[in-house]
Design a protein around this nucleic acid. Sequence first.
DNA 1: CTTGACACGTTACGTTATTACATACATCTC
DNA 2: GAGATGTATGTAATAACGTAACGTGTCAAG
Lengths: 163, 163
Amino acid sequence: MPPADPVPAFHAHDHAQCSDSMLARAEALAAERGVRLTPVRRRVLELLLEQHRALGAYEVLDRLAAEGFGRQPPVAYRALDFLVEQGLAHRVARLNAFAACMHPGEPHAPVFLICRSCNAVAEAGGDSLRRALEVEAATQGFAVERSSIEALGQCSACRGAAA
Amino acid sequence: MPPADPVPAFHAHDHAQCSDSMLARAEALAAERGVRLTPVRRRVLELLLEQHRALGAYEVLDRLAAEGFGRQPPVAYRALDFLVEQGLAHRVARLNAFAACMHPGEPHAPVFLICRSCNAVAEAGGDSLRRALEVEAATQGFAVERSSIEALGQCSACRGAAA
DNA sequence: CTTGACACGTTACGTTATTACATACATCTC
DNA sequence: GAGATGTATGTAATAACGTAACGTGTCAAG
């Protein structure tokens, strides 16, 4: 269970360590669910974790092709779809891109904070937001199944740099 | 100023009347701001209002072409961009589509409730959500500039029909 | 009547995503 | 192990979405 502190994307942290720990959790979840974290799928997740930002499908595809995997779009899209289905990654519609999930295994409504300067994508916890959304939807008799909240703005580092 | 009751998309209501009233408000806003609600732009807004759902750019374009307007993508995109800039329509990233705004002139973070059965798109008020989002973002030092909240699920009518 | 700003239209192109089908690989059964 | 079955990977081709660049028309201001 992750600590309740702020998600790391906009904070100094050890990428290698957070990647490793997320990968380990992904392996565990896959085993638990009886699905296969194959080499392509695993490599795509690694790429998303390494970069720590949202990557376009074709960006992922280029990396895969360079590493000897297939070079046609479905190769990337299938791996990305798998990760999204398994809750190991999220789609960031606003950017036509994908980012690793920082809370795999926990049900949550992703809240993306997208820095327009450095393109980093932080994923906020957002349980209060999820509840607020469900309340709002309920007043219209609407049953929420999946939701995503995307905010465009500037992270603290870039605001500091701009000032 | 719109009443504080639920937005009409998932309720029985007089489409013609709500379209007319939104169009009138659009005209007023355009005049107030010194921008031009030209025939193409106005027609696109009418289309969005008539359908009362999110329309893809090419869907809009087909209608325009059939009615004697231009038949190239920029014709539709420019009109849609204009409407979005003026706050008369919103982009629904999840669907690569556009929907008329039901609260033109009021600053607000759009909250879309997208029915996966009938494709209707309701726009909830969401001021409490906007505030919750800003609080959440602030804990990470992130300054929100624009945001959108999109929920996929089923509206009350379709849930009734399914049951 | 000219000028300048804006809107509209077109061609051409770039990016993102899917369909359809063939091949390889793992797993289970015998 | 050999064969059957389901899943994953790979390919080619194309659809869907979006933008850049440029020319023409319109209209109000000077």
